[in-house]
């Protein structure tokens, strides 16, 4: 079941030099209850896609999509009011640099409180009469914090964001995100600039959420290695074009796109085949700047397999859920026979 289904999402940003197409026909299908990794180098447009899903774009963006569905709701046709009802309840987002996403002039308590559904007057009245044990807000917030692994809740709740570390702020952000049990959580590089222990904690937390509440998580990352063992499905994005997408096994065992192959080779493993101090494999060149994008397949200039036909956009090919956009994919027939047999 696809929870989030995006087809041919394009984002154009108008600049003084004309429009720049930063996201070029990206497609993304997220299966309900899975952790979906969206991997791309910084500047490849991961955050832009996330912001487009949430509708948090600036005025100079033009967002077009053939299809953008969350469950049964069409995100492209939502009014601002309806979108507001979905946000925080259906989709929640966790940002990188969490501290800047918390209001500096308010204590954590009141910031978490405003996410919780307000008890309506009617409900309050009913609870008074029927003596239904209504959980107090205080109690709920405390539970939320415990859930994300914050023990000293009293101190944290009475603090301002600038008094807390980035790791704690991120946990608070996660607590706010899961407050309403959303069906989809978008985590935008949630562990940038955090030390290894906190990073592991955050990832474990997200994993637990996924396992216990079957919350779908879209995990954005620039590091293939750090999220690959966490994700059920992976989509790779390069310069605003989705390159390859498939299940974890498909991507790791039989990468078909030259970019994916290069990315997998960058994962550091304690592999005997890599000799000490040998040079690690990378693609030649750099990510092109937004005002000098190559035409057609944007990997073209860096691709070891590039040929003349690469100046046109490749049509996405679908091999049993394994989608690639490449003119010359690695089509190892045996391998494919194997994967299909395993299924």
């Amino acid at each position: 079941m696809a929870l989030l289904d995006i087809r041919n999402l394009s984002i154009d940003i108008s600049t003084a030099q004309g429009k720049v197409r930063v996201i070029d026909k990206a497609s993304l299908t997220i299966v309900d209850g899975s952790i979906h990794g969206l991997v791309g180098e910084s500047g490849s447009g991961k955050s832009l896609i996330a912001k487009a899903i949430l509708g948090l774009h600036n005025a100079n963006w033009t967002v077009t999509a053939d299809r953008m569905f969350l469950g049964a709701t069409d995100l492209t046709k939502l009014s601002a009011n309806d979108r507001r009802k979905i946000m925080g309840k259906e989709i929640a987002m966790i940002f990188q640099h969490p501290r800047s996403y918390l209001d500096p002039s308010k204590k954590i308590f009141s910031q978490i409180k405003e996410v919780l559904p307000t008890t309506s007057v009617k409900k309050l009245f009913l609870s008074k009469i029927k003596r239904v044990p209504e959980q107090s807000t205080q109690q709920r917030i405390k539970e939320l914090l415990h859930k994300v692994g914050i023990q000293n809740d009293q101190t944290v709740l009475a603090s301002y964001p600038h008094e807390l570390s980035e790791g704690i702020c991120q946990k608070v952000m996660i607590a706010m995100a899961i407050a309403n049990n959303p069906s989809l959580i978008i985590a935008d590089e949630p562990t940038t600039a955090m030390e290894a222990v906190t990073r592991a904690q955050i990832f474990r937390l997200l994993y637990k959420l996924n396992q216990l509440h079957s919350t779908t998580i879209l995990l954005l990352s620039n590091n293939f290695g750090s999220i690959s063992n966490l994700s059920d499905y992976i989509t790779l994005i390069y310069s605003g074009q989705t390159v390859e997408s498939g299940s974890y096994k498909q991507i790791i065992n039989s990468p078909m796109h030259p970019y994916t192959e290069a990315m997998i080779k960058t994962i550091l493993e304690f592999d005997e085949s890599i000799s000490h101090k040998s040079q690690l494999y990378t693609l030649p060149g750099n990510i092109p700047s937004a005002n000098q994008l190559p035409i057609g397949c944007r990997l073209g200039p860096r691709c070891p397999r590039a040929q003349r036909s690469c100046v046109t956009n490749p049509e996405p090919l679908n091999f049993k859920g394994h989608v690639i956009s490449c003119h010359f994919p690695t089509l190892d027939e045996n391998q494919h026979a194997n994967t299909s047999q395993r299924k």
Binding site: R84, A92, H97, K106
Partner: peptide, 26 residues
């Protein structure tokens, strides 16, 4: 323009709530 206002939008607060709760005080 700040990030916490974006976060407030992502929380699903209405524009009025955002202005009164987060913008004015800052």
């Amino acid at each position: 323009k700040s990030n916490y206002v974006k976060a407030a939008y992502a929380k699903g607060l209405s524009r009025k709530e955002i202005v009164f709760r987060h913008v004015l005080k800052n």
